[in-house]
Design a binder for these strands. Structure first.
Ligand code: MN
Ligand code: MN
Length: 557
DNA sequence: GGTATTTTTG
DNA sequence: TTCACACTGTCCA
DNA sequence: GACAGTGTGTCTCAAAAATACCAT
């Protein structure tokens, strides 16, 4: 819809993008770049255009070792001279690599068999072939290496680590890169045009930047190391960055990593190591895991103390909820009488449908579609309406919220402080909920004006004008206010857990419907929303689907 | 040979 | 930089 | 049936090109 036809990009677009990013970093981080980093970019800028083209093309490809014969860019006239210039400037190496594994990975499977085992038979897969070649004796390996080295000309790119620093300094993360420029140019992704007046930057000090860099290195490492062994996991823990005072973002990122590693240590039976690591993490589910471990080991006093802390000051609703359940387990283990508590039970009905191959949600929607208009929206609807309602507040240029043009959300959107830091704006905006027309006008206007722009709450492909109209017409403003408040109280946790369907019957009103197929149960976050719905008079029920008994007929076939 | 998956591209 | 569901096994009334 | 744990399909921009795999 929004994605216009692919327009041609300017010549050398990737060069321009690279320099836009790099210039920003050099300007903005003048005080904390290392001499090596400065030198790296100076060398590039001093290079001829061809050399820069080659360097930047290869920088964005996988790996750092390439065979010249496989590089082909029409805009680079002389590959050889570009390559040797890069080598001269210390930006690359044109000698062939020594490492056999690296050499092997630069060839395709047919190439490898032709070069190294002519006429012979080779294992089924490329990976097996490579494993076999690497298992050969030293003499053979040396022979392989020589053959491969001489089979082509080579270039090994230097400076990836500097490029990582530049990208991190620019984006504040390492999962975005210069393709963002391209996507924006093509109109594939549209970011809000928020104010970027004061030249802001994601990191204030070198140690802060280094800490985030280390975090991303550790995260990448976790995907590489063996998860079956304890040693590499503990080694990884030792590599985790030290915290920077006041950097909640870093704390959350690293805690998530700690929790993942600790969970894996649990699986490997290293409970003591896991407990120790969880104890450092302030983010859920660290305390939950500790309680479970202590309960499992019969360490009731430990479990009890932690539970009290969790109940006194739960990190969020989810931790509060899980503490309730753990409390029961604890009392049972301690021989205390169970606390009689009324578990919330959502209103539930049953529905029998003839079995279909489609998802059960689609089958249910088709059924309820006969009673009125029924949409399968899950989290998309309420989040989107909120996103449209407070669109300009989300992108209000609070200090430190925006530092590059490629953010779909302010940097603190998922921080607990998001609402507090915008409390006045939000309070004023919420006054518009006093009037249904002011509210709906605001939502429709944002829908028209911001169509297609990336927003953390709005999935454009999941909301239609018809859905919005129906919803704004049928759902009372008091219900919207209640739901908005809960979302804003915890943007990370409460943007999910909404029921599958929303039904607008022919007559009037509306109803949320959570569809549950056989064997599916309410998720914890769904239960929390339903409890909230219940206390705010928001209509919602669970429908358990059963398939009609054509099973007998099927069994006969 | 055809199809599935990965890599590169703009 | 995910979310919800499917499936398994355990525990227990 | 409640519950915990784990795995899966779904999203990541879309389409072309390159490569790997598998089956006759
Ligand atoms: Mn669902
Ligand atoms: Mn459901």
């Amino acid at each position: 819809m929004q994605t216009g036809r692919p327009e041609a990009l300017a010549e050398n677009y990737y060069l321009a993008n690279f320099h836009r990013l790099a210039d920003f970093v050099v300007d903005t981080y003048r005080d904390i770049l290392t001499p090596a980093e400065r030198q790296w970019y100076d060398s590039l800028q001093a290079s001829t255009e061809s050399a820069q083209q080659l360097y930047i093309r290869l920088l964005s490809r996988k790996g750092s070792v390439f065979r010249l014969s496989r590089i082909s860019y029409p805009e680079i006239e002389s590959l050889d001279s570009a390559a040797s210039e890069l080598a001269t400037r210390g930006l690359a190496e044109t000698l062939p690599p020594d490492n056999l594994q690296i050499l092997l990975s630069a060839f395709t499977k047919p190439e490898l068999s032709a070069l190294l085992i002519p006429g012979g038979k080779w294992p089924r897969s490329r990976v097996e072939l490579i494993d076999e070649l690497l298992a050969a004796n030293a003499g053979e390996q040396a022979r392989f290496s020589t053959i491969l080295q001489q089979a082509d000309e080579w270039i090994t790119l230097y400076g990836h680590q500097h490029w990582s620093v530049f990208r991190l300094g620019y984006f504040g993360n390492l999962y975005q890169d210069s393709t963002e420029f391209v996507l924006q140019e093509l109109g594939t992704v549209i970011y809000e045009n928020y104010a970027l007046d004061a030249p802001a930057r994601p990191f204030a000090t070198r140690s802060q930047l280094n800490a985030h860099l280390r975090y991303f290195e550790c995260e990448a490492l976790l995907d590489t190391i063996s998860l079956k062994e304890v040693r590499p996991l503990l080694a990884l823990v030792a590599q985790l960055p030290v915290m920077i005072a006041g950097d909640d973002h870093l704390l959350r990122r690293v805690d998530r990593l700690r929790n993942r590693i600790a969970r894996q240590l649990e699986r490997l039976g290293c409970q003591d190591d896991a407990l120790e690591l969880y104890a450092v993490s302030v983010h859920p589910p660290a305390r939950e895991r500790r309680v479970r471990l202590h309960l499992g080991r019969g360490e009731l006093d430990h479990a009890g103390r932690l539970l009290s802390l969790m109940r006194e000051a739960p990190f969020n609703d989810a931790e509060d909820q899980v503490a309730d359940r753990l409390q029961q387990q604890y009392r049972k283990a301690a021989g205390l009488p169970a606390i009689k508590q009324v578990r919330f039970k959502p209103q539930t009905t049953a529905l029998t449908l003839s079995e279909s191959s489609d998802r059960v949600e689609y089958a249910a929607r088709a059924f309820y579609g006969r009673l009125g208009d029924c949409y399968y929206t899950e989290n998309a609807l309420v989040n989107a309406v909120l996103g449209l309602f407070i669109w300009d507040i989300i992108y209000f240029p609070i200090a430190g919220a925006f530092f590059n043009p490629f953010q779909s959300a302010p940097a603190d959107f998922y921080q607990p402080s998001f609402s507090a830091r915008r409390a006045n704006l939000l309070m004023t905006r919420f006054e518009e909920l006093e009037s249904e027309s002011r509210f709906t006008d605001r939502v429709f206007e944002a829908y028209e004006r911001h169509q297609g722009k990336s927003n953390p709450l709005v999935r454009w492909d999941q909301i239609s004008l018809a859905l919005l109209s129906h919803s704004l017409e049928r759902i009372p403003v008091s219900h919207w206010r209640a739901m908005f408040q809960r979302i804003l109280s915890d943007t990370r946790d409460n943007t999910s857990g909404f029921p599958d369907l929303i039904l607008f019957r022919e007559e009037a009103g509306y109803e949320f419907i959570e569809v549950k197929g056989p064997g599916d149960v309410l998720q914890k976050n769904q239960l929390r929303w339903m409890q909230y719905f219940d206390s705010h008079g928001i209509p919602c029920r669970v429908v358990n689907i059963r398939w009609a008994q054509d099973v007998i007929g099927k069994a006969g076939q």
